[in-house]
Simulated scan of single mutants.
Amino acid sequence: MAHSVKAGDKAPDFTLPSQAGEPVRLSDRLGERVVILYFYPKDETPGCTKEACAFRDSYEVFTDAGAEVIGVSSDSVASHLAFAGHHKLPFTLLSDEDGSVRKSYGVPSTLGLLPGRVTYVIDRAGVVRHVVNSQLNIGKHIDSALEIIRELQAERA
């Protein structure tokens, strides 16, 4: 496993397919926007559904603050398409089926089995500004990300 990406590190660039099957490159999403990149274990599980719906419910606040939300798991493009449709998720979900991007960020596993739940706030220059690593405290991911987004927005003003 690679070292864990920390605040102050350059975010590793990658290209993964979205739920629509389109390639998404992280570096193409930066510049104009801050990216909230969140890794989660699995589509349609209780905690992951709660997290995705919390990001959905705060989506307008994130976009108004100049941020884009992107979720990543090892689920397939088809699984992401169904998950996004079922819960009306307005943001991009990326399929990291071989786990290579998860590994490049050093996202830990829980008990060595369950893929970890980690959120990265990446500024417009591609620098990780904040990391939230909590498998169970889902609200912390959204609240912390919103706080950092607001700080970055204030710095830019």
Rank of each mutant, 00 (worst) to 15 (best):
V132H: 05
I148M: 09
A78V: 11
R124M: 07
D13S: 04
S76F: 10
M1K: 06
L152N: 09
E155H: 13
H141V: 02
D143S: 14
D57I: 11
R129Y: 06
R156H: 12
N137I: 07
H141A: 12
L37A: 08
I70P: 08
D64H: 06
P17I: 13
N137R: 11
Y38L: 08
Y40W: 11
D13F: 01
Y120G: 05
D143P: 02
K50R: 12
V101L: 05
L89N: 13
G31T: 01
R33H: 15
E32Q: 12
G21S: 10
T49W: 00
A54W: 00
Q153N: 14
P90V: 00
S74V: 12
H87F: 14
T49F: 00
V121S: 11
A11C: 01
T110N: 00
V128S: 00
K103M: 10
K6G: 00
S100T: 12
V69A: 02
V72A: 07
S58R: 07
V128H: 04
V131L: 03
E147K: 15
I149F: 05
D96R: 03
D75V: 04
R124Y: 10
I70Q: 10
L146M: 13
V118S: 01
S74R: 15
L146C: 12
A65V: 11
G47Y: 01
D98L: 05
L26P: 01
D75I: 08
S76K: 07
V72H: 06
Y40D: 10
T119S: 11
S73N: 02
R117I: 13
I122S: 02
S18R: 12
G116K: 09
I138Q: 11
D75N: 15
I142N: 03
E44S: 14
G31K: 04
I36F: 00
L81R: 15
Q153Y: 00
L93E: 00
V101M: 03
S73W: 09
A2S: 13
T49Y: 00
P23K: 14
T119N: 04
T15P: 00
S76G: 09
D9S: 06
D123C: 08
V107M: 11
D13T: 03
L111A: 11
K103D: 15
V107C: 08
H86W: 01
S74N: 03
I122T: 02
E155A: 15
Y40E: 11
